[in-house]
């Protein structure tokens, strides 16, 4: 864990002004960006653990095809981060294994 992001902003990009949270820590995004992009901009770490073996994965295809970017957003599990525009105040949690039934803690 704690891998630095493998991306940097191109020259002239606006600052990240959208504030969200990832497992309690601040996660920033820029308007028009997806949650998956914000996650990749912050770190190179896994953003979920698979339900089968617990392997770490993070966003992969960025176009809604592979379902490797699943996270819990505002209490809804298994949401595709790469298809979700970032919004102020979003509460994001890494998806650890299979989803739960009923309300998320």
């Amino acid at each position: 864990m704690n891998a630095a992001s493998h991306f940097r902003d191109a020259p002239g990009m606006a600052p990240r002004s959208i504030r969200m949270s990832l497992d309690g820590e601040t996660l920033l995004a820029r308007p028009g960006e997806t949650v998956a992009a914000a996650l990749l901009a912050q770190s190179g770490d896994a953003t979920r653990r698979t339900p089968v073996t617990g392997a770490g994965r993070t966003a992969f295809c960025m176009m809604g095809v592979c379902f490797d970017c699943l996270v819990t957003i505002d209490g809804r599990p298994n949401v595709q981060a790469c298809m979700t525009p970032a919004r102020d105040g979003m509460v994001i949690r890494r998806q650890i294994g299979a989803r739960r039934l009923g309300d998320q803690p």
Binding site: H6, F7, R8, D9, A10, G12, M13, R30, G32, E33, T34, A37, L40, A41, M62, M63
Partner: peptide
Amino acid sequence: ILMKQSGMVAQ
């Protein structure tokens, strides 16, 4: 896609 949508470049 990250370049187009977020102005993020792989390093």
